[in-house]
Nucleic acid binder design. Structure first.
Lengths: 229, 229
DNA sequence: TAGATTGTTAATCGATTAACAATC
DNA sequence: TAGATTGTTAATCGATTAACAATC
């Protein structure tokens, strides 16, 4: 019995929750660890990771508590173990299957992105209402008519839905997903969708990111030239 | 002279900084205001916006301080004015031109996304090293050889660069952008890039979002079934 | 050993939320 | 007027950062 199991026995109900900023940083650490592995490096430390990613070393340490690994003072952690522990924590080693609705530009891009497999996600099919797209294959993934979604999702036990549709249709199609047994929705429409409790929703909003970038630009300009916006 | 100008005169150096979470919510408000406008609604309030977007009304009020608008007690704000003030604050009414490097799946999707114009961004050309892509047009945008980037960026005074390349090339091409006069980079590669001070960088990381979604799913499951992960 | 890093607890900082007077 | 919302200041909450003993 390993250490993790012992801790789990001792505290069966106490499950530490990690903040969203922490969760968002874990893939960055993992990416760096993979780089180290490719370079043949076998151990690393929080200060080293922090230096490479331009983060605070103590923050890195706090974040890595989620792995429940024990490091060696002065040495750090095994790169291999650490990468594996992050994958394990994020559930990247048991792949989940997903359906996508909306085979437009963005939908097609996601269908063609090979990296998702590494993150435990496999988009196995897409759905659309456009007769020109139905029956075709985009980036190796077959496009089905939207009306087949509920039946196929139920039959295949799909739990993750990806929404890449115009915002006007987002709420309606999210509802369809939930009625079809989907319990987690990754929403790329520039509109919030509201869902019943128990349904996980992750909003991806390019307008939000662009707003942050715009303001960063303004900030740099005003600092540089020394006057208000 | 309007109120904003007066405030700017009175406090020329004091420029209130708004938090990143606030900036990310502004486009959501704007989107809802546009909906109201389409429905012919002329005024709205923070509680109404909060209800529609499932947010805290006081948070909405705090966020809208960035507009420097004065609302009417019991009535709220003019939908039209509020939408305009947000556009103004985010700089969406003076369009900025951008170059994109990496005309793969994701790059093509961004080239084809019509919505950016509304957010003050115009991607006017893309660059790639693939001879099969160079000279072609993807979603109406011409693809140029990468080696033309510095000259064209300089000549056209382009300040925004969008990176949609594999992570192995991200840092190198970000450097090229900066050498070509780019001062803001929107990075879609799943790798952090480090930049000199004064260069604005916005990282877009699907792996991070997926990490958050995965954990939301786990959380719901453990709550539902009442045991640890 | 000396020194760097871990592990953990405490302090700080900033965002969110609450409180309340002013006002239409 | 009564009541809802604004504008603004204070309190809370949580994430980040600091401090420090333990240890290899």
């Amino acid at each position: 019995m390993n250490k993790e199991a012992k801790v789990a026995d001792a505290l069966p109900t106490e499950q530490k929750v990690f903040s969203e900023p922490t969760l968002r940083r874990l893939p960055l650490y993992h990416h760096y660890l993979k780089q180290l592995m490719a370079d043949g490096v076998t151990s690393t430390s929080c200060p080293q990771i922090a230096l490479a990613l331009n983060l605070n070393p103590i923050q890195v340490k706090k974040d890595l508590e989620c792995t429940a690994l024990t490091g060696k003072p002065k040495v750090g952690y095994s790169v291999d173990e650490l990468a594996g522990a992050i994958e394990n924590f994020l559930g990247w080693n048991n792949t989940a299957e997903a359906f996508l609705i909306g085979a437009g530009h963005l939908g097609a891009a996601l269908l063609g992105y090979q990296g998702f497999k590494d993150y435990g996600l496999d988009i196995i099919a897409a759905f659309d209402v456009d007769p020109a797209k139905i029956g075709t294959t985009i980036n190796g993934k077959k496009i089905f008519p939207l009306k087949k979604f509920p039946e196929l999702a139920r039959r295949m036990g799909i739990k993750i839905g990806i929404l890449t549709v115009p915002s006007a249709q987002a709420q309606e199609l999210a509802n369809l997903m939930v009625e079809s047994g989907i319990t987690a929705i990754w929403n790329f429409a520039p509109a919030r969708i509201s869902m019943p409790a128990g349904i996980a929703v992750q909003h991806e909003n390019l307008a939000s990111s662009l707003a942050v970038l715009s303001k960063k630009i303004n900030k740099n300009n005003t600092e540089e030239f020394g006057h208000g916006q």
